[in-house]
């Protein structure tokens, strides 16, 4: 028969265990499989973030399905991505290339079986010059836009974040405003994020299909086909012994 003291001790131990669970829950999550283990040795592991200039709370380590760094040719990113088929559409505006001086600049038009289109732009460079935040460019070109962020949940666990931009512009010869939905983030080869090691801007642009949320879901689906799992960059550093 349990006496009162034993019950009290049991209650206190339970309280302690609950307290420990609350305090250490974030560290326990990876071990419980909610976030996949990440290893820096995997050459398809990258760091993503909403900005290249400063780290943000949305910085993540991510395992990609292709190479997104300047040690590799960005042309090797697959032309078939899920239901999407792409064709290269080289930039014809030389001013863009003169202004940005990118080390690599890939522009592709993907279409899916429903006839929807999606532009993928990948801009690679080793300085800040090639990376103009898209909203600055849209602003300068007279677009009205709203901005926010959106998570992409990955199939093998974790999520990465991108900034979205919903732009609208009334062109003189058009009956209705042209609308663009842009979703973008930056990729770094490692957690040091040295510009000299190369940065890649990953940017999707389409018209609006249905509501903004539906369009972002379409962009998310495309991103999910190219990135497998994500987690905390600190975990990546720990696994690398840094």
């Amino acid at each position: 028969m349990l006496n009162r003291s034993t019950l009290t001790a049991g209650a206190v131990v339970l309280l302690l265990v609950m307290g420990l669970a609350v305090v250490y829950w974030p560290q326990l999550l990876p071990a419980m499989g909610s976030a996949p283990p990440l290893a820096a040795a995997d050459e398809l592991t990258y760091i993503t973030d909403l900005d290249f200039w400063q780290r943000t709370p949305r910085e993540r380590a991510v395992v990609a399905a292709a190479h997104f760094d300047l040690q590799h040719d960005l042309n090797d990113v697959p032309l078939i991505v899920g239901d999407w088929t792409g064709v290269n559409e080289p930039e014809t505006n030389q001013e863009v290339l003169i202004l940005l001086e990118p080390e690599q600049y890939i522009q592709r038009l993907y279409t899916d079986s429903a006839g929807r289109y999606l532009w993928l732009s990948m801009v690679g460079g080793r300085s800040s010059q090639p990376f103009h935040a898209p909203d600055i460019c849209y602003d300068a070109d007279g677009w009205q836009y709203d901005l926010g962020s959106h998570p992409t949940r990955l199939d093998e666990g974790g999520e990465i974040y991108g900034l979205w931009l919903h732009g609208r512009k009334q062109f003189p010869d058009a009956a209705t405003p042209t609308e663009h939905v842009v979703y973008y983030f930056y990729l770094f080869p490692d957690a040091q994020r040295n510009q000299a090691d190369g940065i890649v801007l990953f940017k999707l642009t389409s018209t609006r299909y249905g509501a903004l949320e539906e369009t972002l879901a379409m962009h998310e689906e495309f991103v999910r086909a190219l990135f497998r799992k994500a987690g905390d960059p600190a975990e990546l550093m720990r696994n690398a012994g840094l």
Partner: peptide, 19 residues
């Protein structure tokens, strides 16, 4: 109708840092 929005903390941070 012509208002421009930065929605959520990520967008607000972006506006501070980049604009």
């Amino acid at each position: 109708t012509d208002d421009q929005f930065w929605r959520g903390l990520d967008a607000i941070r972006h506006r501070y840092v980049r604009m």
